[in-house]
Write a protein that binds this DNA or RNA. Structure first.
Lengths: 230, 230
DNA sequence: TAGGCGATAGGACGGATGTCCTATCCGCGC
DNA sequence: GCGCGGATAGGACATCCGTCCTATCGCCTA
């Protein structure tokens, strides 16, 4: 964990936030597995993730959980609740040791009205998150697990085939909305075909080209950046 | 279709938009089935739906479509694409004869930076849409059609049991992410149990209390308003 | 009235997926 | 080294669900 100033510099928060807001940033650190936000709790601050890795999920009445997204620096948490809902929609949990810069909601709201740049940034971010959700939802809803897995792998792997979001098959199952069992069946097939390998705690794509025909729908890679576009 | 001024007055657009933006509003009308926006087309304007009814959907490569949401006045279309994506994510189609007030994207962007109130409004709207999507997605992903249908009916019916979004079983199937066939099976069961009735072109909930145990998860009714809350 | 068409209804069948249950494997602490 | 717990692997079986196919119904048009 570095100093607040160093993060502000690295992520150019100066250009996003007014001086008084930068001044109000407070560092918070979280250990692996620790809750950064709990669904249903009042949302008191906007968080900038500057270190580590986290995941957002909800837990349903029947005990199952749905993994909505993964975060890594630089990312913003709590934007959804900033205007409107005053309680967190999802729980956010640190996967690794992580650090955030926290900004009290009340401050942000007050300052935001005269800082169009920051609001526009938030709007853009919310817009693309919403678009991403819609795409992911469509895929989850309309394709069998085989295709969902292919889409996820293509979208989240780096140039060497390492998967960015998670290396845990259980988490992955939650993310693509399948049972562990069913995911395992598909993984086995992919592995038998030399498309991927998954050893304890590591998932790796070996032959991305074989995945493409399976994932040819809405997910697309934007010039090797690994970002989701529509 | 009434005059632009009358809509501006009815929905209090004055308080949201600056005078020059109100000035720039242009009326556009659409017949039933007409496309208000086509997925993939460049997004050139922000649209305020002031009359009629519309639905947003995407069409997948395999020919299936996913219905993302229904709109009725007053609603905003195209906010998602305003900052960031420059192409529409979803297609929007008028269900009935509808009217919109259109505002050129370029104008909005320029004006927005100095109109914090409007941006804050957009952020709030995007936030709650995102939260709603996440809830709906979780349900669609993790519960069988029976529960999804129950959730949808409870969330979208008015006080007399009329369903607001659609009366078309085909559309409903797309919305909750099921095949027409499977939806029909569940509808039959619900009908046999006296929970609902569905005659040609009309769906009606007869016994909402029997639906509640089936839909007891995240969807909740907020004091009879029929709005989705978390 | 006949014909056509879209919406509804439902039978039959197979594939996808979930649940339940056992092994197996590996890293870790004792 | 031993035992333990979490992650992984996979068999067995039931169910959910989708596809394919027919039939019926109501409305509209010729």
């Amino acid at each position: 964990m570095e100093s607040v100033e160093s993060y502000v510099r690295r992520y150019d928060l100066d250009s996003l936030l007014s001086a008084d807001l930068v001044e109000a940033l407070r560092p918070r650190t979280f250990g692996p597995g620790e809750l950064i936000a709990r669904a249903g709790d009042p949302s008191t601050s906007l968080l900038f993730l500057v270190e580590g890795r986290a995941k957002a999920y909800s837990r349903l009445e029947n005990g199952m959980s749905v993994l909505a997204s993964f975060f890594r620096p630089f990312d913003v948490l709590g934007e959804v609740e900033l205007f409107g809902a005053e309680r967190y929609t999802l729980s956010v949990e640190a996967i690794e040791a992580s650090a955030c810069l926290a900004l009290p909601t009340a401050l942000v709201k007050k300052a935001a009205l005269r800082n169009g740049r920051f609001l526009a940034y938030l709007c853009g971010r919310l817009g693309s998150k919403l678009a991403d959700r819609i795409v992911a939802e469509s895929i989850n809803l309309r394709y069998p697990v085989e295709n969902r897995l292919a889409s996820f792998l293509l979208a989240s792997m780096d140039d060497e085939g390492r998967v960015l979001g998670t290396d845990d098959l259980g988490e992955l199952a939650d993310f693509i909305g399948a049972s562990y069992r069913q995911l395992a069946r598909v993984v086995r097939r992919f592995r038998a075909e030399g498309i991927m390998e998954s050893t304890r705690g590591r998932i790796r794509v070996l032959d991305a080209r074989r995945l493409e025909p399976l994932a040819r729908d809405l997910y697309q890679r934007s010039g090797g950046s690994g970002k989701l576009i529509l």
